[in-house]
Each structure stands twice: as C-alpha cells, then as structure tokens.
Design a protein around this nucleic acid. Structure first.
Length: 539
RNA sequence: GCGCCUGUAGCUCAGGGGAUAGAGCGCUGGCCUCCGGAGCCAGGUGCGCAGGUUCGAUUCCUGCCAGGCGCACCA
C-alpha cells in the first residue's frame, strides 16, 4: 500500500496490521490513524478517512475498506483469497510451514541433562517435551540444530550414589549398613545392586571402599544411562550428542578454564577455596570454583562445558533448565563474559516446576527419598502422546499442576485425542474414497472456487497461517503456541466435517473438498511432528 | 530479607496497548436414513488490589497482597 500524506515515511509510526478478533471487523485492520491522531491534532476517524481515500489497493484481493470504531481501517478481502493456499500446501507437503528465520545459524539445544542417579521424573519429562519441541521448531524455522544431553557423571552426587550402592551391596549380602543421609534411598538402587551381585557376587566385600564404590558406580551409570536413553526414546525424544561431564575433566578443560580465569584476575582464595568474582558480572554473590578439598565444583565444569559449546562453533546456545536452577544463570553468564565470550549467545529457558497431585494431595517428589512418579510410569499410565501434549500445551513459565488421577481418568478426553481424531478422520475419508474406487483428485482438475461455505473458508484461512505460527513459536521458543494452533485447526476440521459431506455424487464439489481435507491433513501432520506427537491413521 | 516465575470463567490454562477477552473440563439442552458421536450446535460467570504512563491499560511501569522456586565449598 502506498501512502502519500504530508508526513514522511520516517514519521509514520510503527503501526499494526492485524486480524481483528471480530469477524465483522474485516479480515485485516490497522490502527495507523489512531497512532497518528496526536501528531496531526486531528480526530483519528478523520485521519482514517484521509488515509482510506489515498490507499492504492490495486492488485490486492481487497473488496472493501472502511473506517470503523475509534478510527480503525478495516479491510475486507475476497472470501476466496485463502483458497490459494490449498495447492501450495499440497505441493509442499511435509515442507509446508518451513520458514527461514534461522539462516542456518548453528544453535545448540541442551535439555533434560538429568543426573544419572535415578529414573527420570516429571520435571525431566517436561524438559524433555519442551526442549525436544523447541529444537524441532528451530530446525523447521531454518536453524542448524544440535540436540544435546549433558551427563552429570561426576561430582558429589556420584560419590553419594557410590556410598548408597555400597550400603545396598552390604545389606543384600547380609551385612549391616546404612545409607548416608545425603544418599539415595530409592528402591531402584536395590534392583540395580541385585543385578550387580549376580555378576560379581561378594567379590567387592573385601576390597577397599573406593574400589568397591567405583565398580558399583561404573556399573550403575551404564545401567542408568541405558534406562534413561530407552525411556526418552519411548517418549519420542532423541539426541545428537550425549556429552559426559567426566570427559571435561579427563580432557583437562576444567583446569584450563580455571587457569584462564586466574590469569584474567577474576578469582581469589578464601577459606581454602577458590572463588570466582561473579559479583563483578552482575551476579548476587561470588561462587566457588574449587573447593578447599581441591575438587572443582559443578560450576567450574559447567563453564568448561559452555566454552566447549562455543568452540564447537555454536553461535546460539539454548539451555532448558528447571526453575530450581535459575540462580545459576547469572554466574554462568558472568564467567563466560569474563572469558571473553558473548553471554548474550546463551539463552536459558527457565521452566517452572511440575507439581504432582494424586488423590487430591501434593506428592513430594525426590530421588533421595525414592518417592516419585517416573517418566516410565507416566508413559505407561497416560500414554506417550497424551503425556507429551500435556507438558507442551502450557508455556514454560506456567507452574504445572499435574493431577495424575485426572490425567488417567480423562485421558480419553485429552485434547491430544481431539487433534489426532481429526487426523484419523481424514485418513478414514481417504480409505472410504478408495473403497469406492475413486482417488484423490489432481490439483489441475479441481475447481477450488466451489468452496464457498463459511466452514470451508475459515478452515483454509487458518491453514494459511501455519508458516506464521511456526515463525512466532520459534522466535518465542514457545511450542505451546503450536499446540494451541493445532487444537484450533482440529476444531475447524471437525466443524466443517459435521456440516458438510466430503464424498458425494457431486464430483466437482467433492473433489474440491477432498483437496481441502488433504491440505488439512498435511498441516496437522507437520504440526504434530513439531511437538513429537504421532499422527495415527486410525484410533 | 533479596532474586526469578505466577495470579484471567467453578477447575486447568491460552491471549494481549485498542472496537463485544477465548479454549478445554464440568453443568444444561439439542443434532446420527449420513464419509468414525473420541464429533457438531446452543447456553454462564472472569482479567488479585491500589496508584502511574497513555487519546485508550486486562496487557506497560511502581507498590501491595497471595502462591511456587531459588538464595550450599549440592547439582
């Protein structure tokens, strides 16, 4: 559109051109006149009239523009304009919705990174669903994405694991032993130790403690990681890289970053420990890099890990962390800034914690006390797709109350089935079509302008929004926006389906409707895939 | 006490500087000679409180209130 008002382009404010909430307000509306009212000292409606008179709408499918309300200019489009998206969708297929806002930028997404000291819990599950969907979104939006799991196979919690396993080992072999206060009390360690005993019997009873614990830990970590990988795979979550914390120590990079920070003068000793001056970089307090015992902290290793990410060429680094880790963000970024890296390249998505309800009461989850519902249990109870959708349908910012009873009882009514049902319905239509000896019509043999019903046009119009929805969700790292979109498209499909027959003797109309539902099927499939949900042909 | 997140319908949550704030669940009625009724159509109440910025605030800012999570030589 061209404006030839007395104002120069530089003075035209950043106005909006949006789809109004109300259908009566047209297909698009702009608030430009409202924004100009002050500068021109004129009523917004009067300005709107002038702008409207100056508009050049040639070549656009606009059939009417009118001034409305306080000074909006509403545009009404040829109702069939959205039908043009149908051939586009069918030709692009699985690629429909692909956008290129990423420009092949190398982005690394780290998520879950659970301690291998037990089974995955609800918080890990949320991180898995969110992180995996964010990665898929970024991939679809033109980024070069690497999905990564950081294995915390070093540090205090591993020591505690070793002591706990040793206690179970003694207990199972008939000796008195107590699991340390800080240890892991879960039953899963009992099972693990039993399996260990089958392999090694009492061989480690007489060894010294560190050898015994080392052997137990090595065995346990292997088993744990295998179980974690298996569960995540069942959840539809896959990784490109499994990154071991221990490898950072072995490769010397932990010491290396500590030395660099020393050289740059950002550390000091206090009470025998080595501290990083995090406060100089905006953190609340300084942080220990090396304990008085000489053992580096998790923080030191994490700095080394992030330096490693930068060295691998990632220009954007996304970490999906639970809210209980948010205090770690400022000091990590501070340390990276101290080392000369751009902390802005690191984006930490903090997701609020999951609170589990059962029987109307909060279930306190803790690996140490051994009381929690694992991701495995969850998948078994409510199903993989329902579980994933549940985690991904809410924004990361929302505190998630997960009522297990409700999820179980209402699993049939879970919105994910509503969406998948829409997909299955379309597939069923195609089956019926084939049974009648008919086949999907060709684009060039179909007159899409036969689609004139409100339900048909509304559906086509929403399908046309998909690339924009992908863009928005990728920019916001907000998979839940895709979940909302999916639900709306499914709703429009169901409404259409209930009002109009697709397969009839009116071949011309039937064909155009078949292409509309085929386009819908493609959009549903592409969006479901972004969320890691399956698109079942029958349910 | 300090920091981060949240407060929208009975419940669980979307949305968002503008014209009549949405969905699901639950509740009440309708709709199958018909491609899958796991569906469709209709019906209700709501932006925590108080200031501020603005032509306009539920949205932005500040304070307060309420809840969650952090504030380790754990990760």
């Amino acid at each position: 559109m061209r404006f030839s008002a007395t104002k120069t382009v530089a003075e035209i404010p950043d106005f909006g051109l949006e789809v109004p909430r109300e259908k009566e307000h047209g297909d698009f509306a702009t608030n430009l006149a409202l924004l100009l009212a002050q500068a021109f000292k004129m009523s917004p409606r009067k300005i709107a009239e002038i702008i409207k008179a100056e508009l050049d709408l040639k070549g656009l499918p606009v059939i009417k523009a009118e001034v409305a309300g306080p000074g909006f200019i509403n545009f009404y489009l040829d109702p069939t304009w959205a039908l043009g998206v149908i051939p586009e969708i069918i030709e692009q297929g699985a690629d429909y919705g692909l956008v290129n806002i990423g420009n092949k930028e190398k982005v690394q997404v780290e998520y879950v990174s659970a301690n291998p000291t037990g089974l995955l819990h609800m918080g890990n599950a949320r991180g898995a669903a969110l992180g995996d969907s964010m990665a898929s979104l970024l991939d679809f939006a033109g980024y070069e994405v690497t999905r990564e799991f950081y294995i915390n196979d070093a540090g205090t919690q591993i020591e505690n694991l070793g002591k706990s396993l040793a206690a179970r080992y003694f207990q199972l072999l008939g000796f008195e032993a107590e699991i340390p206060e800080e240890g892991y009390h879960g039953e899963d360690l009992v099972d693990l130790t039993k399996k260990f005993i089958i392999l090694y019997q009492g061989r480690y009873l007489k060894e010294n403690a560190s050898i015994r614990e080392e052997a137990l830990v090595k065995y346990a970590l292997n088993e744990m990681m295998a179980a974690i990988k298996k569960t995540l795979a069942e959840f539809g979550v896959h990784y490109d890289v499994w990154f071991s914390e221990t490898s950072l120590y072995a490769g010397g990079s932990v010491n290396e970053v500590i030395e660099h920070l020393k050289e740059k003068g950002f550390v000091y000793e206090h009470e025998g420990a080595l501290w990083f001056k995090a406060q100089e970089f905006g953190a609340k307090q300084d942080e220990v890099l090396v304990r008085a015992s000489g053992v580096p902290t998790y923080f030191a290793a994490d700095i080394a890990y992030h330096v490693n990410k930068f060295r691998r060429g990632f220009t954007r680094i996304i970490n999906v962390w639970g809210a209980d880790h948010h205090g770690h963000v400022a000091r990590l970024k501070g340390a990276l800034a101290a080392l000369g890296y751009n902390p802005e390249a690191v984006q930490v998505v903090i997701m609020q914690l999951v609170r589990l309800y059962q029987g109307g009461e909060i279930v306190r989850m803790s690996k140490r006390t051994g009381k929690f519902v694992s991701l495995e249990d969850l998948i078994e109870e409510v199903g993989r797709d329902a579980a994933r959708y549940f985690f991904v349908m809410r924004s990361a910012d929302s505190h998630l109350d997960f009522d297990l009873d409700l999820a179980r009882e209402q699993s049939v009514k879970n919105p994910v089935y509503y969406i998948q049902y829409a997909y299955a319905r379309i597939c069923s239509l195609k089956k019926v079509l084939a049974e009648q000896g008919r086949s999907m019509p060709r684009l060039d043999q179909t007159d899409l302008t036969l689609l004139t019903q409100e339900a048909e046009l509304a559906l086509a119009r929403r399908l046309a929004d998909f690339p924009e929805e992908v863009t928005r969700a990728a920019q916001n790292l907000a998979p839940h926006q895709i979940a909302t979109y999916l639900h709306e498209v499914a709703g429009l499909l169901h409404a259409f389906y209930n009002h109009h027959r697709v397969i009839t003797d009116d071949f011309a109309l039937s064909n155009s409707r078949l292409l509309l539902v085929e386009a819908t099927r493609i959009v549903l499939a592409n969006a479901l895939k972004l969320l890691g949900l399956r698109a079942p042909e029958r349910m």
